[in-house]
Design a protein around this nucleic acid. Structure first.
Length: 800
DNA sequence: ACCGTATTCAGCGCG
DNA sequence: TGAATACGGT
């Protein structure tokens, strides 16, 4: 592609961003400013200037971003050259480097990756081994270890850092350094890294191995980084080392106003301080927004102007003024859902909008429920972007654990997961004995299985035999997997392990679904093999597509990448503001614009946190192309409690000039936090025609005031339905009416026909024991005779 | 090994 | 409130 063609259609700033190729460059790319286009054009331009593809390193955060860039570069310069550009996510690119030098770091070349759940189990194992109290919450420990690694603290550095140890003192977890150390030790014994280790070890490599540093940094003449505002300290330092050679051709692109990942270690200072870190750098601002109307851009500007720590810039749109922002006030989250959905319906009619043109954004995932319920009620197609991926399912994890174990037999977490699945008579006792043995020898469970001194740790010979049998099976599968491709190996593993047969034996509906999922996993292995083979055909080398490759590919997938095969065409999108980053929609609804929720106050510690929340609100606003509606509810059920909060300060910060129905100057409802003394307002809806559902509500007399009352104490015991009512463990014993118990028990008698939730109908044969240990022998029509403890079994008289 | 119940927790989530 | 995990009994 000719230089002219590359630059065609770029505005002057974009053009400068593409052609300023010498020395460090910071491109401050406002929302919707054509950032991806600039990045891809820049790569094309570098190639056009004679740079070799393999001398360019381009790093992104997500697989999706990397994929999009690859595709667009391929269109500009052709697939052969595009393929040779070193481009990918931080993690995927660094894994490649780490494999080259794995041994110098004390890892096997074939190290595998622990995902978060593997890592969590390993942490639980550490806590257990150190016999620590339940002050030590595995999730919390995991988060703190992750934070430490992102800031490049090793366990010993952690122990010496007052920052960490003082928090541990407060949290009553003084043995954090020991857990951290044991965890790292375990990981090394198992030949595995977690996601943070990839960055940590990359730093260690570049710090301690000069040869590696020179080789890797010498390989690249140009380093490009997307979303620089989201980099953490570990990534920051790696980049610094990769760009150490003059003239330091490091080009970073980002927007400080969209830095929203501080909670997972991102440092906005990285972008704010770029100028200081790279003296003489060039700063290019992309301030023209091609996405949104003027009103939206100006409204977003008026909000973000309240932040102090910013790179000065003036974002603007040359488009039409467009619609003003609408506020929608609701009584509760159900009504909020109704207002939003009604608005969507009316816009589909009045503006011929498609469902896919709408996005409903919220701060927390739990807000999706009310919206979802209402959308379902109205039969509208929608899609929730979040969480549970295919790979979280138990049966998938089981088969994946076999794959992982075959690729890396020292993976202890996978070993523990499948050693007795299907049942092989290897119980918890045997495994904990084996674990003791492994711990004493500082080796993996798999290696410990072959040692001779089991008995010292209490492992019974019979159990030892069974464990070794299992290990031999893994060994033979491993041997096979070096000869066969990933798909053949995967099939063999599913078969020989007995796992597939085990799930196949379950003929229930769920069982069938599980087998279907296993098939789907095998299909995806096959798809991976075919994809890799077609890539290899284009190039010269024809290597075996290994199962290890598949595992790595999957490990580096995110939830966002795995769409459970659901068809996303023409559906209303529901997602958190975080996951909306980088996306755009004609119509955007921001739900739950309330104090305490957005901004979320749960963990708000410093003034900087409120700025991060404000940036998040900014991100939400700037997703919209044509229209934004901001909704809030007077009361909302949160964590099982009713909460009343006033309108979000961010909503108020939108300049009235850009709002269709500005908020009253002082809110009617003060910020009373569910205090029983305060009057709480509840609305009773019914009139929802008002398109913008604004402040007439609540003012027009359709509001009831009442004082929330504490429930009468003691709480009345509910009318007995069955013997299960006796089991009121939350009620103090003296609150149970003894008469009630007696009466209740007498409802059951020998010969009576009853029903059970799971076993269905049956007849009582015998009643034995005294309350609360009273038991009944029941002959179920379908399941035969069972002895049930009445305290636990929910029996009710048969309906006739 | 599996069931039902008790208890606990509650934020956003890249790779 | 309700989901996820831990526990404890057969």
């Amino acid at each position: 592609m000719e230089t002219n063609a590359i630059l065609e259609g770029l505005n002057p700033e974009q053009s400068r961003a593409v052609t300023t190729i010498e020395g460090p460059v910071l491109i401050v790319a406002g929302a919707g400013s054509g950032k991806t286009r600039v990045l891809t054009s820049r790569v094309a331009y570098l190639l056009e200037q004679g740079c070799k593809p393999w001398e360019i390193l381009a790093l992104t955060f997500t697989k999706k971003a990397a994929g999009e860039m690859k595709e667009r570069i391929a269109m500009m310069v052709g697939p052969e050259r595009a393929r040779r550009v070193v481009m990918g996510t931080f993690h995927s690119v660094f894994i490649r480097f780490l494999r080259e030098y794995a041994e110098s770091l004390g890892y096997p070349k074939e190290f595998t990756i622990y995902d978060q759940s593997d890592s969590l189990s390993a942490i639980k194992a550490c806590i257990k081994e150190l016999k620590l109290s339940d002050n030590y919450k595995p999730k919390d420990i995991q988060a703190r270890i992750s934070k430490a690694k992102n800031d490049l603290y090793t366990p010993s550095a952690y122990g010496k850092s007052p920052d960490f140890t003082s928090i541990d003192r407060i949290k009553k977890t003084p043995e954090m350094p020991q857990i951290f150390a044991l965890y790292q030790q375990k990981m090394k014994n198992s030949g595995v890294m977690d996601f943070d280790d990839i960055l940590l070890n990359m730093n260690i490599l570049l710090r301690d191995n000069t040869e590696a540093l020179e080789a890797i940094s010498g390989r690249f003449k140009h380093v490009l980084v997307d979303e620089y505002q989201d980099t953490n300290y570990a990534q920051y330092l790696i980049l610094k080392k990769l760009a150490k050679n003059p003239p330091h051709n490091l080009c970073v692109v980002g927007d400080d106003s969209q830095s929203i990942y501080a909670f997972r270690g991102a440092k906005i200072q990285n972008i704010l301080n770029f100028k200081k870190d790279y003296p003489g750098c060039k700063i290019i601002r992309l301030e023209r927004n091609y996405r949104s109307t003027r009103n939206i851009v100006d409204a977003a500007n008026s909000v973000i102007a309240h932040n102090e720590g910013r790179i000065p810039k003036k974002c603007y749109s040359d488009g039409e003024a467009g619609e003003k922002i609408h506020f929608m006030r609701a009584f509760n989250e159900q009504e909020e859902a109704m207002l939003i959905v009604s608005d969507i319906i009316s816009r589909t009619r009045s503006e011929h909008a498609q469902y896919q043109d709408f996005a409903i954004l919220y701060r927390t995932n739990s807000q999706s429920r009310a919206l979802e319920e209402y959308l379902r009620r109205k039969n509208l197609p929608y899609m929730i972007y979040s969480g549970n991926s295919f790979f979280d399912r138990a049966e998938i994890k089981d088969l994946m654990a076999y794959f992982k174990l075959v690729v890396n037999p020292n993976d202890d977490e996978s070993f523990k997961r499948v050693v007795n699945l299907p049942a092989r008579g290897i119980g918890a006792t045997s495994i904990s004995a084996l674990n003791e043995c492994a711990r004493a020898h500082g080796c993996s469970l798999f290696k410990a299985a072959w040692l001779e001194d089991h008995e010292l740790y209490g492992l019974r010979p019979a159990a030892g035999v069974k464990i070794r049998e299992f290990c031999r099976m893994i060994d033979s599968l491993a041997a096979l997997s070096t000869k066969e491709d990933a798909y053949a190996s995967a099939r063999e593993i599913a078969d020989k392990s007995g796992l597939y047969a085990m799930y196949k034996a379950d003929t229930s509906i769920e069982g069938l679904a599980r087998v279907g999922n296993l098939d789907e996993l095998l299909n995806s292995v096959q798809a991976y093999v075919e994809e890799q083979q077609s890539l290899a055909e284009d190039s010269d080398e024809q290597a075996l597509v290994t199962l290890g490759g598949f595992l790595e590919d999957v490990a580096l997938l995110s939830n966002a990448d795995t769409d459970d095969g659901e068809d996303s065409s023409n559906k209303i999108a529901l997602m958190t503001v975080h996951s909306a980053k980088g996306l755009e929609f004609p119509y955007v609804y921001i739900a739950g614009a309330e104090e305490n929720l957005f901004p979320s106050m749960s963990m708000l510690a410093s003034a900087q946190d409120i700025e991060e929340e404000r940036r998040l609100f900014y991100v939400a606003l700037t997703r919209a192309k044509k229209a934004v509606s901001v909704s809030y509810a007077d009361t909302r059920m949160r964590n099982g409690k009713h909460e009343s909060n006033s309108v979000s300060r961010f909503a108020r910060e939108i300049d009235d000039k850009y709002v269709a129905n500005p908020l009253p100057k002082r809110e009617f409802l003060d910020n009373s936090d569910d205090d029983d003394q305060e009057p709480t307002r509840f609305g009773f809806g019914g009139r929802f025609q008002n398109r913008y559902g604004r402040n007439e509500y609540g003012r027009s007399g359709n509001v009831q005031y009442f004082k929330r009352q504490k429930p009468a104490a003691p709480a009345p015991i509910q009318a007995p339905r069955s013997t299960t009512a006796v089991r009121q463990t939350n009620v103090k014993p003296d609150l149970i009416d003894p008469n009630f118990v007696a009466v209740d028990m007498s409802e059951l008698y020998v010969g009576e026909r009853i029903e059970h939730n799971r076993f269905g109908a049956g007849k009582i044969l015998e009643i034995s024991g005294m309350a609360p240990d009273m038991k009944a022998k029941v002959d179920f029509d379908k399941y035969g005779v069972k002895l049930l403890i009445l305290k636990y079994a929910k029996l009710r008289p048969e309906k006739s």
